[in-house]
């Protein structure tokens, strides 16, 4: 069986597909959040060094990972839109930016609430924290630049360049704990394995998956409005039941 993938790169077909997928991703995400947090709070043991404060990890690490991955995906879509001039790719980039920014904010917020009891400071100008803050500003820059240009196609191109240039920051965040002497600890989960308790690992991977599904659901829901806005002069939008009523 061959699937025509290009069919779904047309906003008209993707709009309907996205609408069907949103509830599935949303409910799965809710179920996984509940499962992950149950394991994280009731099954995973108390940490020997950090006592109960370590339980922030089940939101802090997934949110941080999401903020970085979503930036790369956003830059990837923006680049596709720039190179192939595909409308939907640029719309996806615009739809991903607010969610990425919110995950970056959650990462910094939960980091501050973890830093205070463990390091004695809400914030330090350490390489990991600073580069994550720059990531949040890159998201703001992308959103603001896109909003400041009236012609949507020109806005797509300008913000795509910013997104692509800014993606240099993502490996800097990831490797910051290796390259510099940071107060922030090194990676607990490495490609070579981890020293974490198995229940802690499970809880973290489940909440990470939940964050992924949440990000997909909210992005698809958001891109549907962007598609409607930008395709409003087309016949297929006029013929939609939700527009006709």
């Amino acid at each position: 069986m061959t699937i025509n993938w290009f069919k779904y790169s047309a906003p008209s077909t993707f709009y309907g597909l996205a609408g069907k997928l949103v509830p599935w991703f949303a409910w799965l995400s809710a179920i996984l959040f509940a499962t992950g947090l149950y394991i994280g709070f009731f099954v995973a043991p108390t940490d020997a060094v950090q006592s109960e404060a370590y339980r922030i990890i089940f939101i802090h690490v997934p949110a941080s990972i999401m903020s970085m991955f979503l930036y790369l995906i956003m830059a990837g879509y923006a680049a596709l839109g720039l190179v192939f001039n595909t409308r939907l790719s640029s719309m996806m980039a615009s739809a991903l930016a607010p969610t990425g920014a919110l995950f970056a904010f959650i990462s910094l917020w939960t980091g501050a609430l973890w830093g205070k009891p463990m390091w004695g400071a809400w914030w330090v100008w350490d390489a990991r924290l600073t580069s994550e803050l720059i990531l949040l500003f890159l998201y703001f820059g992308f959103i603001a630049l896109h909003a400041s240009i009236d012609d949507p196609r020109r806005a797509d191109r300008a913000s795509a360049l910013l997104a692509i240039l800014g993606s240099v920051n993502v490996p800097i965040i990831y490797f910051s704990v290796k390259w510099w002497n940071t107060l922030h600890q090194g990676s607990t989960v490495k490609f070579t394995g981890t020293s974490m308790h198995v229940a802690m690992q499970q809880a973290m991977f489940i909440t990470l998956t939940a964050c992924w599904l949440y990000a997909i659901a909210i992005t698809l829901a958001r891109v549907r409005s962007i598609i409607l806005e930008r395709e409003r002069n087309t016949q297929w939008v006029d013929e939609l039941p939700e527009v006709r009523s």
């Binding site: 006592s51 404060a53 609430l113």
Partner: peptide, 13 residues
């Protein structure tokens, strides 16, 4: 004793 930090994290998220 870490309630403020833990619930402050999850609450805001």
């Amino acid at each position: 004793g870490y309630g403020f930090y833990v619930w402050g994290s999850y609450g805001v998220a």
